[in-house]
Design a protein around this nucleic acid. Structure first.
Length: 472
RNA sequence: GGCUGGAUGGCAGAGUGGUCAUGCAGCGGACUGCAACUCCGUUAACGCCGGUUCGAUUCCGACUCCAGCCUCCA
């Protein structure tokens, strides 16, 4: 039985979809004016794993993740670059899709863009205005009236009165109440914008998610996700807008992934302490990054460091080592093994990936043990275990590559010369055949200097790369 | 200040009222020309102070420290 930690109640709850067997999930995606960083990757991977596990569990998933392709930061950046905003966003949407593919993140079922839903946004604002939940200011801005919505602050546990005390009151304020937030921002004719009943302008940030989620999934749906930093005010505002507009309850389960930290501070654009996905891909294989992101529980903060990536590489290497030499594709697919049960139990407990991973390591050990047991059907059984390892790894988006390829891969920039390494290994094999141990050791030292580890087996030697990202 | 969440062995990171997390590292052994890989065994932890309990790292309370949100942010 799947349980999910619901931010709304601050408790783990039994997951019961609105329609049996079907899950509708909306996740707040990226604002596309720059390359995605590891903090974004964390969100993308977390919900990718969730989505994969829901499907693995036999549920029919409709996964929607939006793209914010119009907002102040986009316009500012486009203006700085001297380019049309849509050229900027198209470029970074394409770049982000590349990064997602690198990290084995599956595409959502729908990926709505704000600019393609202006009519839905306007329609929702109209409903809010009609019901007095929103009002037009003198300059054409439209604001949501927070005090009109009784449940405001429920998700983030904010006291509306205290918000008022702390709110900034700008000079020349157009809002009736400082807590109110913009649904529609007026724009001058030369700015990017769309016509609306309140004049030329563009949508506020929060309303797009209300409009797109409702549009794609209905007034009420199962799961709404996003980074924990979006809880307030973004998600709080979404709830207010959506429930005010539709009169229906909005999302049932709210899920928030934890931040990525660098030196104990949140990685963020404003702090400037971020590493883009592409930066890190130059130093480490994509799967290592993904492993790092899955090796902590999705709600916990995760620290980003080269040391962490090195450890992730070592751990992943262990799993891939177990897969070597086994004919996975033709092996029988094991069902209902104790390993899979342990994996499921962990994942059913609010997607506890670290614990699920421990089941994978137990499985890898068993696979190694069986393989060298010397029993008659050892290889066959080991291959079955390996196949299971690949299948369960796949639920986490891991272990889908060729084992030898992974073990012999470095970073994109490592410049590994496999031919040269093979040549040295061949020389060493001859030296060993000649029992020239001095020469064999000398060649091994050379390989070690190249970050290559040789492993001598009964039927020849092979090699793998030992990664030391922090040394470079 | 308000609201969240956290403090676990050398590092990372789960979890549990009394018995194994797991990975890396360490130690002993098997294997190996020596190693590596692998296997077997093994060391080691639960911020601080009280309380509940036969027994708490796990429940409750205080304290200290850390982080996130309260302003754009995954």
């Amino acid at each position: 039985m799947l349980t999910i930690y619901n931010t709304l109640t601050r408790k783990k709850e039994k997951f019961q979809p609105i329609d049996a067997g079907k899950v509708r999930m909306y996740v707040c995606g990226l604002t596309t004016y720059d390359y995605a960083h590891i903090g974004h990757a964390r969100m993308l991977v977390a919900f990718d794993v969730i989505q994969r596990y829901l499907r693995y569990s036999g549920l029919d998933v409709e996964y929607v993740r939006n793209i914010t392709d119009i907002d102040d930061k986009i316009l500012k950046r486009a203006s700085e670059n001297g380019e049309y905003f849509a050229d900027l966003t198209e470029r970074f949407i394409a770049a982000t899709h590349e990064d997602e593919a690198s990290l084995f993140i599956q595409r959502p079922d729908q990926e709505p863009r704000a600019t393609a839903h202006i009519a839905d946004i306007v329609a929702m604002i109209e409903r809010l205005v009609e019901q007095d939940y929103a009002y037009r200011a003198e300059n054409g801005d439209v604001y949501f009236s927070v005090k009109q919505f009784k449940n405001y602050g429920h998700l983030s546990n904010k006291n509306v009165e205290e918000l008022l005390a702390g709110a900034r009151i700008d000079i020349g304020e157009l809002k009736r109440d400082p807590r109110d937030f913009a649904l529609w921002k007026s724009a001058s004719d030369e700015d990017v914008g769309w016509d609306s009943p309140w004049g030329y302008g563009r949508p506020g940030w929060h309303i797009e998610c209300s409009a797109m989620s409702t549009c794609c999934l209905g007034d009420t749906f199962d799961i709404h996700g996003g980074g924990s930093d979006l809880m307030f005010p973004h998600h709080e505002n979404e709830i207010a807008q959506s429930e005010a507009a539709t009169g229906q309850s909005f999302a049932r389960y709210w899920m928030h992934n934890g931040p990525v930290r660098v030196d104990n501070e949140k990685m963020s654009k404003s702090l400037g302490n971020f590493f883009t996905i592409r930066d890190v891909l130059k130093k480490y294989p994509a799967e290592v990054i993904r492993y790092l992101l899955v090796s902590s529980h999705y709600r916990s903060p995760i620290n980003y460091s080269d040391q962490g990536l090195d450890q992730a590489a070592a751990a992943l290497g262990r799993l891939y080592t177990a897969l070597r030499d086994h004919d996975v594709t033709s092996a029988k697919d094991l069902a209902n093994s104790r390993f899979e049960k342990a994996f499921q139990a962990a994942m059913d407990d609010d997607f506890n990936t670290p614990e699920a991973m421990s089941a994978l390591f137990d499985l890898a050990r068993e696979c190694n043990r069986v393989a060298k047991s010397g029993e008659a059907d050892a290889e066959q059984r080991a291959a079955q275990l390996a196949r299971l390892l690949v299948r369960l790894g796949g639920v986490l988006g891991l272990l889908q590559g060729d084992a030898e390829t992974f073990l012999q891969s470095g970073s994109a920039d490592a410049g590994i010369d496999a031919d040269a390494i093979d040549a040295l290994v061949a020389q060493r094999r001859q030296a060993r055949a000649d029992k020239n141990w001095a020469l064999a050791d000398e060649i091994r030292d050379k390989l070690t200097a190249m970050d290559v580890v040789v492993e001598d087996g009964a039927d020849g030697s092979r090699w793998r790369i030992e990664r030391h990202g922090s040394d470079k």
